[in-house]
Amino acid sequence: MIKVKLKPIVGGNATGEVVKVERLSFYGEVDPEKGILVADGREVKDKILIIGMSRGSTVGSYIIYGLKYYGNAPKAIIMIKSEPIVITGAVIAGIPLYEALPREVFDMLSDGDEVEVDEQGNLIIKKASRLKER
């Protein structure tokens, strides 16, 4: 079990499975009606969405709102570094958002890992497949 301190932007508690994306433009790369990543069909609904960096059109904020609107929101979004498009989307959709995830922790996490994050930004990695290999 590993504990990491994150910076909360939109606070909240969440526990769930990791879905990890290195670079993401919400507009064009996320389908809010289906709750999936367009490129590979991975589900983001009820997951902890971990993002390296985000980019692209500012309409992305409405896509994040759309995830909530269609009942497909992730339980939380965790980023290495946030930016206005995601912050705006997370606030208007009320999805917990954290930043300052250390790069080495990002690299260590993979899809299906179990993590927990609380209001103060304490991230607990409960089960990480790559952790066992070490």
Partner: peptide, 20 residues
């Protein structure tokens, strides 16, 4: 304000504007 075409922001954007 940009992003006011239905072709760009779709249902979700329209619903958000109505909500606020």
């Amino acid at each position: 304000v940009s992003g006011v075409s239905y072709g760009t922001i779709g249902e979700a954007g329209a619903s958000f504007l109505e909500e606020i």
